[in-house]
């Protein structure tokens, strides 16, 4: 852990970006850690070598003249570049619109309808008439007898009407 921290500080030290406390800590660590001391020396050597790679050169002759000539021949702004720019702008707009549309559709969904008891039974693949039948069967015997009595009376009335007609 200390060596990992030391390596980060070594890199910062190369750029003179260490505070006094960090600098003191690193100095102390390097005294006791030969591997990190070697690392510090490697990094310093690398930085020196990299600085030696710097190329101090000027552009080829007539740079600005060549550039102005190119600018005169270049079309001011290509149509494709404009189309590309439009596309680049259209993509996020399109994504926002799709998100909004999905949100609106989600919110506008009709509320879930309350199913009637019969529908619930049908939904559960059961026969709703079965229940009615059970209710009917559960009816009290006196009610059933009354129903039979009324049915008998109706039959008698229809019989008498038939005789009268003759």
């Amino acid at each position: 852990m200390n060596c990992r921290k030391a390596e980060k500080l070594i890199s910062k030290q190369l750029d003179s970006r260490l505070g006094a406390r960090e600098s003191a800590w690193l100095e102390d660590h390097l005294k006791h850690c030969p591997a990190c001391a070697r690392l510090a020396s490697d990094y310093q050597q690398l930085k020196t070598m990299a600085a030696e790679l710097k190329v101090e050169a000027e552009p080829l002759p007539y740079f600005s003249e060549r550039l102005l000539a190119r600018l005169s021949s270049e079309p001011k702004a290509s149509i494709w570049a404009a189309v590309e720019r439009l596309y680049a702008r259209a993509i996020p707009v399109f994504l926002i619109m799709v998100t909004l549309l999905v949100g609106v559709l989600f919110l506008m969904q009709p509320a879930e309808q309350q199913l009637s008891q019969s529908e619930m039974l049908l939904f559960q693949n059961q026969n709703p008439l079965k229940e009615m039948q059970a209710l009917f069967e559960e009816e009290r015997p006196e009610n059933r007898q009354l129903k039979l009595l009324f049915a008998g009376l109706e039959n008698m009335e229809s019989y008498q009407r038939g005789n009268n007609e003759r």
Binding site: L53, K54, V55, A57, P59, L60, F63, S64
Partner: peptide
């Protein structure tokens, strides 16, 4: 503006691509 900045822009390019002609093209 080009004359003021051509060396700096070219310097950026050549120190990365390390080829004179390529750096000149890039700067243009």
């Amino acid at each position: 503006l080009v004359r003021n900045y051509q060396n700096k822009v070219f310097g950026l390019a050549i120190n990365i691509v390390r080829n004179h002609e390529t750096a000149d093209d890039l700067a243009q």
